[in-house]
Every structure is written in C-alpha cells, then in structure tokens.
Write a protein that binds this DNA or RNA. Structure first.
Lengths: 111, 111
DNA sequence: AAATCAAATTACCGAATAGAAAAAACAGGA
DNA sequence: TCCTGTTTTTTCTATTCGGTAATTTGATTT
C-alpha cells in the first residue's frame, strides 16, 4: 500500500469518502452489517430503526461509493460490507478521541 | 489503544469528526500544515488560496475539534497540526481507493 | 490618539442533504 | 391478472453549511 502524494484533486476524492462516513445513520448501517454479515433492507430497518425510504437512500449512497455490496434474491435485496477498512478508520478516530480525553484529564488533574 | 464497542452515541461522535474531514478546503489546510509545520493565517491564505474569512472559519472548526493547535504571537496567530493521525486516515482511504481501482481494472481486463 | 495590519465574527445567499410521505418499479403467489 | 410484499424513486420541507463582504476586535506603530 504505497502512500500517494496528497494533491488537491486526491484530497477532493478523499473528502468525498469522508463525507459518506460523516452521517451517524450510515455508520449505524455499516456497524449493523459488521455484526450480522449480511442483511436485507427489511432487516436493516429493524436493526437501524431508520425509515424505509431514508434507509434505501443511504444504502444507495454506500453502495455507490463502494462501502457495501448488494445481492438480489427474488424480491429481497441483501447488503454486506465490501471490507472492514471502515472500522480501521473508526478505530483511529477513537484513538484520537481517547488521546483527547487523556489530555483533558491531565489538564483537569493539574488544577 | 483499546477498541471500543461502537455504540450509537459513539458513532455520532465519530461521524462528527468525519464531517470535519469531509471538506477539501479543510484537508488542504491540514496538508499545508503537514508540509510546513507551523503557519500563520496570512501564510495559510497564500498556501491554500482560501478567502480570509472562510479560512478563519475552517480553522476555528479544526481547532474546536482538536485537529490543529493555535499559538498567538503578537498580532499573529500560528497554527500547527495536533498530530498526524489525519494522514493515517487519508492513507487508509487511499488504500481503499487503490483497491477499488484494481477491482475496476480486473473487471475491464476480463472483457 | 490615529492609522495600520492580522484575525475573528457577523450577516447574508445559495447549494447540498437528511428525513418523511407518496408513488412507482419489481417480484412472487393466488 | 390481481394482489401482496419488498425496495427504489420522486417530491417536498427544513436544516445545515460553504463562500463572500462588511464589520469588529486586538495588537503594533507612528
């Protein structure tokens, strides 16, 4: 995995991907798919508690940007994660959050 | 760095952070700070080619969410990266992009 | 004190988008 | 074919947010 120079053009593409992950509803969908491997839209409605039309739009976006895969089976459509990279991203973010919490802790304990 | 369970509340916080990174202008700012270590607002205006008020707002957001630090020196304000985690995130994103490009390549070469 | 420079803030506009309701597309029975 | 169930698409409203211009705040200099 070579590291590319971050040109303005590449930064635009990266920002676009971050935007897909910047919505709690979509992260909830991805997380539900991590737990359950593969879920139909109806099942996802229950797991995520999102409205049907709303969920469908989010799934369309997630699929269009390559985060999830779709499989049709009769009238049902099943979605699954393309890969687990998303959660690497979340873990790094969580690492950031932990560090920030530690910093705040230090500042508080000094006073 | 322990991995936390991704509760809906945590996913909201994570989504918020992703949103900060979902804007090309802000990624350009962060990238400029990676190259140059520490820059004043005036210098950042030149490097990023953003308007003054616009840049100031982005910097406020980046600082408020802990991505950059500020240091006042007289009338000048200098900004620097809090840490390089952002670029780990970008690299993972780029890894995703590369994989997707490979997939497309495979599909094309099959036909 | 007045003038100047740096940076932040405010006010406004326009574009993008989440959410919900309704309609449409699609597939499987009866 | 009609009906039912699943999913997508369309349409609408309200909100959010980026960009710009104008103003304000703060610091330095003369």
């Amino acid at each position: 995995m070579s590291v590319q120079p971050l040109t303005p053009e590449l930064l635009e593409i990266i920002a676009e991907r971050f935007k897909v992950l910047s919505e709690p509803a979509r992260l909830r969908i991805l997380n539900a798919l991590r737990v359950d491997e593969e879920l139909s839209v109806s099942e996802l409605i229950e797991k995520t508690e999102l409205g049907q039309a709303n969920l469908s739009k989010h799934l369309g976006l997630l699929h269009g940007s390559g985060f999830v895969e779709r499989r049709k089976e009769g009238a049902f459509v099943y979605y699954s994660l393309s890969n687990e990279d998303v959660f690497i991203l979340c873990d790094v973010m969580c690492g950031r959050l932990e560090k920030e919490a530690d910093e705040r802790q230090k500042i508080l304990s000094r006073s």
